[in-house]
Design a protein around this nucleic acid. Sequence first.
DNA 1: TTGAAAGCGCTACCAT
DNA 2: ATGGTAGCGCTTTCAA
Lengths: 327, 327
Amino acid sequence: MATIKDVAKAAQVSVATVSRVLNDTGYVHTDTKTRVTQAMQELNYFPNEVARSLFNRESRLIGLILPDITNPFFPQLARGVEDEIHAHGFRLLFGNSDEDREKELAYLQTFKQNQVVGVIAVTNEPESDMYNDDLPVVFLDRTVPNAPSVFADAATGGKMAAMELIKRGSRQITLLKGPAHLQTARQRFKSALDVLTEKGVDFHVMSNASFSFQEARKSAKALFQLYPETDGIIASNDIVATAVIHEALRIGKAIPDEVQIIGFDDIPQSELLFPSLSTIRQPAYDMGKEAAKLLIKSIQKQPIDQSVIQMPVSFIERETTRKVDSQ
Amino acid sequence: MATIKDVAKAAQVSVATVSRVLNDTGYVHTDTKTRVTQAMQELNYFPNEVARSLFNRESRLIGLILPDITNPFFPQLARGVEDEIHAHGFRLLFGNSDEDREKELAYLQTFKQNQVVGVIAVTNEPESDMYNDDLPVVFLDRTVPNAPSVFADAATGGKMAAMELIKRGSRQITLLKGPAHLQTARQRFKSALDVLTEKGVDFHVMSNASFSFQEARKSAKALFQLYPETDGIIASNDIVATAVIHEALRIGKAIPDEVQIIGFDDIPQSELLFPSLSTIRQPAYDMGKEAAKLLIKSIQKQPIDQSVIQMPVSFIERETTRKVDSQ
DNA sequence: TTGAAAGCGCTACCAT
DNA sequence: ATGGTAGCGCTTTCAA
């Protein structure tokens, strides 16, 4: 790769001048500029970002930490982030944390060592010291009060799920309670519960500690054994809902006539299931985009009107819930 | 962030000495070493990777270019890559190309500007000049003869798909031909075709130019209209197969009794469909891992026995194909 | 065993 | 309008 020196030599000017045309800063004569530009092209010159980063004490890299890109909720998020930062000339440094504190810390550390300008993180430890320095951070999906963050309206989501099921005639509802360490899962659960209590609807609660399909399968099996009279199920997310559908199909329960099922997230495959899954949608792609926008504003020290962004959820009506005449 | 100078001052030595203990190179007295190490800890010092990269003329970053992380085949690949490079102390610079040459070029360019040590790319342009320099590259999934690359055995895959369908009794097979620009898709198609021809089985061919679900839906609809007597369908991948399942279900074709369906890839959701999809599996995670291993060997100038790695595919028998007594 | 200093490629300040 | 040069944080000679 050619360096600024090579260009300077070829254009018969100093490196300072080359730097000026490169950054379009300070005075430089039109003719000189032409000569320099030409030299750059001839040498196929591109500035070394590393040298720039060293001087500026910051790179044009943004770090993204996700639990696991293999989990179908996250690619959308990542894509939203990537599209937005790419449009602003930033590049993505990416790592899977597996929700492991040590791994997360290691990533964050190397991100800093690479002088990233900011970080977007889906983390269970937003309050940790590791995020407690001057590096701009935006928390995605999981957060802590008042920290810059983007997340979906879990309370409304939980409420919606319960309301839609009731409206569509479920009278014996079973709630599948998600992982306790996830604030969003707890919140959805709680507000669904509140609605059920308030409306005086019969309900049961089952815990399934993980979002893995295999675990969910067991919970689903247990659910239908323990509460065979259940006619409505609020799953903790779409993966779990998928397992519930499978089990219902397996034991010959008619969906949605005998039992209605509703999920959370609206991951891409939910639409492709049979029957396709009715669910409470989180706008994952947009959440990623918003997080990136927020981070970039913060990096560029632009005024920020809203640093805590709650995104709306919506009920996606598909085939695991019954139709109602008038909504 | 503390710098090497700060550590030097605190430990009352020169920066050269600090650098020596940092890199465990050259002579340094045990006592001095202790003093330096202690100073590092007290100052919470971590070396600036950017400065290191500048000096070494290479970073510890590896670039990964994927068409679209949102496409369910790619997260597995990405995860395989990431796990392997992480284990070797490298970090991932990531970009979605959308199969757009300009975007891909832009990424590759900035990767180079950031002095990545190597690149792994899923690209339609492996022969392009942009990959034609001294930067180590491994092509994943899509490749060109003799270039360092990792891909699945598409020929065997296509053959397997046809054989399994025939073995299970299909006599009127329709082949869905995938995007023409994808070598792997062409290859699978061709070898499936060869088997069908050789065995004298009746068949039809339909093109569906894209892997998008919406497009596939249309093709599926057309397929059943044009060739209603079809009793076996070889889809170009699992997304397309999913659309076919949907359409078959919609028009009341019994799967697998009236029509058998087989896909390619074995994306995570294929198992979760109803009926679950029989498919030819590509070991995506392992492919990512192998690509990373190969790249790292190349970076570290280790001997490479195999720079063109073909990974085995396998038939995953699920519910869209009929059972046979003896295999 | 240790330190001084050059230099990686770039930007910004100070001269001219 | 242009050039010289210090310095970003690090590693690696070369001397001592």
